[in-house]
Design a protein around this nucleic acid. Sequence first.
RNA 1: GGAGAAAUGGCAGAGUGGUCGAAUGCGGCAGUCUUGAAAACUGUUGAGGGUCACACCUCCGGGGGUUCGAAUCCCUCUUUCUCCGCCA
Length: 423
Amino acid sequence: MLQIQTIRDNQEDIILALGKRNIDAQPLIEKVLQLDENRRAAQTSLDNILAESNKISKEIGVLYKTGKAQEANSLKEQTVKLKEESKQLSEDLNTAEEELQTLLYQLPNAPHTSVKKGSTEEDNEEIFSEGEIPKLIEGALPHWELAKKYDIIDFELGVKIAGAGFPVYKGKGARLQRALIAYFLDKNTEAGYTEIQVPHLVNELSGYGTGQLPDKEGQMYHVTADDLYLIPTAEVPVTNIFRDVIVNESDFPISYTGYTPCFRREAGSYGAHVRGLNRLHQFDKVEIVRVEHPSKSYDALDGMVDHVKNILGELKLPYRILRLCGGDLGFTAALTFDFEVFSTAQDRWLEISSVSNFETYQANRLKLRFKDENGKNQLAHTLNGSSLALPRVLAGILENYQTTDGIKIPDVLVPYCGFDMIN
RNA sequence: GGAGAAAUGGCAGAGUGGUCGAAUGCGGCAGUCUUGAAAACUGUUGAGGGUCACACCUCCGGGGGUUCGAAUCCCUCUUUCUCCGCCA
């Protein structure tokens, strides 16, 4: 959520920045400022009445103590009117606050200056690429065919047990999954991230904290009996560790990594593009999360990008990095770099990591602050990224590493797998 | 699941209707002393709103109520602890 103070101070800049998302924020911002003014006006009137009535109450207390009950009783009558007024005003205040809140929840984060205006993924800018796109063998297969051929992933079985989008990994397929998780976690902890295990279900407040609610309500599985949500990403539980927390400036940099399954309803996705591992309701992901000083957050973002590059380099997968345009940028992000692996047999790029800086957008909702050198509380910056999302990395490995003898395991994974070939 | 107890500032812990935003201790910060450190001593130290700055307002787990006045009384929800039951 954008800070009201920031909106007040930088109205024009914010409207301009939000324009990169192709939204005309002008009317919304004007309404926000109007509501904010109403809110403050109601607050001031209410405060004055409460101050008055506090004063009278204290006088009554003194009068009773000195035995002047009669005078006290006449003062009491004065408070009746004040009470009525304060009741009305506090209702007004609540209404104004709620309206303002609702409105602020509708405003996405203001994109970073480097973000280009654009409407779809077509407008994303490629800023880096690495790795040779391999020349595949004759009769190369897409990963879902390979999965069947070597009996390592069973999509139909998943349908029987749960439904489409819930694959069952078998034998070497299951082992390769486990190897990838362990490998990613090891790489992340080597880079200084603290490994952490978190709940896979979260409450409503956590959903609001990181911005999945109310924006993406329909994308999460909701356990209504207990009013809990299955996490769509580890970002939610991990970042919410810092909800209502004031950290010390000396605690920076804060960096966590965690593996979790992720659950997404993916309402509205159909067709060939969601075949196989391309889009699932349940998938595994290793996430990295950082909490940073505002002056260091973009350095941190670069560091995270380099870290993911390093992993993909080790896996020897051809990939590219895109800077998302305004239209493709997530609701809560100020700047996002997407990593895409080339899925050779499908002849398309698959998103495998998304690394973002949220600046103070999440921190404002979370009330995640730090004490600066002047002893003032300031909002921190939050960042996160996938390091990495499993199924599409798996798809990339299966397709790019297929040979006539089977699927070769990337060297770095062999120690984790205990085998070097799936055949 | 059953029975009981509790929830106060970073932590511990007092406060049961009237200057209580809250004693005290620990911790943190600043200073004195010291070559430096420790110890000791002195001061300072919650959050939010509001203001140019003050004033002022709100917050003692959440929500609601009683009262001129609530951390203190009532209702309700949540959480934690103890005992019993069940159980990976």
